[in-house]
Design a protein around this nucleic acid. Structure first.
Lengths: 148, 148
DNA sequence: GTCTATGCAAACTGTTTGCAATTTA
DNA sequence: TAAATTGCAAACAGTTTGCATAGAC
């Protein structure tokens, strides 16, 4: 499980205040989706989120609601989506520092890493090409220890 | 237009020999798909390939054939696919050296770059995590000069 | 002549959307 | 009670697949 700076209750409270301030409405669906994302610390697909909310809290959430919520959370910069290359979006909270991914092409295991050198190099490359850098995705594909 | 080490006719000739050697059959569809990929030097979607083959050479190729051919070429390591984040696969020849991409989130322009430092850093990261490195994708998102 | 590749249309997967019903504030 | 959110089902986009036909060797 991932460690965040903030405990879940504080995080949720701030989130709900933010939602209200923007003129949107809160719902138990949003609460439980966030709860799953927070506590799993994994890169979950919309389907997995739906399934987990049901399994962990016995709450039914329509898959359409999950997609809408993820889009909403992405726009709020609370969630980031990632395509590992199989055409499926996976979502994770952006509470922790930026990181990149190692993906096992055999078992789909995902390991996170972050590397200062790569980060700074990217900034340089963006500058050289006159790009105003917004974000980046770096994914290394390979075979994990147990799949080799 | 991109520069390759080999001219197209030589490349196609070697490709066809390779196909025969593996017990598969050649076709004009494969020829023209490769010709478009070679001469465009772009990252094309299956739809764009179909359209270009029609436009440039007035040859009709079914989209299913394009997808099958791309899968075939990927397995032969002649083509590499890339998902820029919009859920559409784009294909390019792997004839040139490995490179990564800068993608403009406004106009979808793609600029290629390659960076020795990042490459070597990736190898190190894979090693640290006991991964047997196979490939990687690094995409930097931002605004290009004219979209800023 | 055998066996692969093609083209079409149907199937499939992941995601989005319209709409009536529900919930929030 | 007004407005946003939900759940369902239908729509959608990109990709894959089954099958009959055409083409390669």
């Amino acid at each position: 499980m991932k460690k965040y700076d903030m405990n879940f209750d504080t995080f949720l409270k701030e989130f709900k205040e933010h939602v209200s301030k923007l003129g949107f409405k809160n719902s138990i669906q949003k609460d439980y989706i966030l709860k799953i994302l927070y506590h799993s610390g994994e890169h979950l697909t919309a389907e997995e989120i739906t399934f987990s909310v049901k399994k962990e809290y016995n709450i039914d959430v329509g898959i359409a609601t999950v997609y809408r919520t993820m889009k909403f959370l992405e726009e709020m910069n609370i969630v980031e989506s990632l395509d590992v290359g199989d055409g499926v979006k996976r979502y994770e909270l952006t509470l922790s520092l930026h990181h990149d991914h190692l993906v096992c092409t055999s078992c789909s295991k995902i390991i996170e890493f972050s590397d200062e050198l790569i980060e700074s190099r990217q900034i340089k490359i963006a500058n050289i090409n006159n790009f105003h850098l917004k974000d980046h995705v770096m994914t290394i594909y390979g075979l994990c220890e147990s799949c080799q």
